[in-house]
């Protein structure tokens, strides 16, 4: 494993992305809008009362944290990996003296830095204007850090194994659209998971999507506590392990199966 080469690649990608920042700011803006819509809709709905125990200020906090968490865990490389396989550019990467995973990680890290430069100031301005309510305890903050880390790992590897299906299926990217829709519904974007109606709520708790975004948000805002917190972590760790195992298995088989076309 050539880790120094990997690090150099990460730095290079980050610097080159910073030159195109206005493009990436646009992308970040687009991803920010859906949670922002539900921030406004729910906080208007909860004006002068509570919904499912949440006040207007609690909804504002929930969605502002969600905007940041969503951006931090969003793995846009999931889309590009499939493209690399489809159009054969994976060839070059396979010839590098290091794993193509570094290439993906480099894009991932460059993206996080560029997007945060856009998202954090905007979230801060929104927080000043919308008066969120947040009661932080030390345990919430401490639990939030591993929850966020695991959420990123899970979302990254879950999307990565789906993208690797491009080795066998030409339009595997439509599975990523399906995943985005499920994330919208079940990961706490359309509503906090606790407010979802019966079947959707059960599905949200059992399936991996909540643990990619909603769960870390609930941990920080204190909505997931006690037994919920422990069960949440158990689900999150289980799904992350499953995603990594699927990634490894598909990658090994896929690379052997891979034939580039063109020349």
């Amino acid at each position: 494993m050539n880790h120094r080469g990997g690090w150099a690649l990460i730095q290079q990608t980050w610097l080159s992305w910073m030159q195109h920042r206005s493009f990436f700011f646009l992308l970040a803006f687009g991803w920010m809008v859906p949670p922002l819509i539900y921030l406004f809709v729910w906080s208007t709905a909860a004006r002068g009362g509570t919904i499912g125990g949440m006040t207007r200020g609690a909804f504002v906090t929930y969605y502002l944290v969600l905007i940041v968490v969503n951006q931090l865990t969003y793995a846009q490389t999931n889309w590009t990996v499939g493209d690399l396989i489809r159009d054969g550019r994976l060839n070059q990467l396979l010839l590098y003296p290091m794993s193509p995973l570094y290439n993906t990680l480099a894009t991932e890290i460059a993206g996080k830095v560029v997007y945060m430069i856009f998202v954090i100031p905007i979230t801060a301005v929104l927080a000043l204007g919308l008066r969120p309510e947040l009661h932080l305890s030390v345990t919430q903050v401490i639990a939030f850090i591993p929850a966020l880390g695991l959420a990123w790992l899970l979302r990254f590897f879950w999307g990565y194994w789906l993208a690797l299906l491009a080795f066998w299926i030409t339009r595997a990217d439509s599975l990523l659209s399906l995943q985005d829709a499920l994330i919208f519904l079940l990961a706490g974007q359309v509503a906090p998971v606790a407010l979802l109606p019966g079947v959707l709520k059960t599905a949200a708790i059992a399936l991996p999507f909540r643990y990619m975004i909603g769960f870390p948000v609930e941990v920080l805002t204190g909505q997931a506590a006690g037994i919920d917190l422990a069960a949440g972590f158990a689900f999150q760790i289980g799904w992350t392990a499953a995603a990594i195992i699927l990634y490894l298995a598909l990658w090994r088989r896929g690379v052997r199966h891979f034939t580039a076309i063109g020349g």
Binding site: Y38, V41, W42, A45, I51, G52, L185, V190, A191, L195, L196, P197, L200
Partner: peptide, 11 residues
């Protein structure tokens, strides 16, 4: 559709 249904499931 589900976005609207979820919202009006609460209010």
């Amino acid at each position: 559709i589900l976005g609207v249904i979820v919202l009006f499931g609460q209010i």
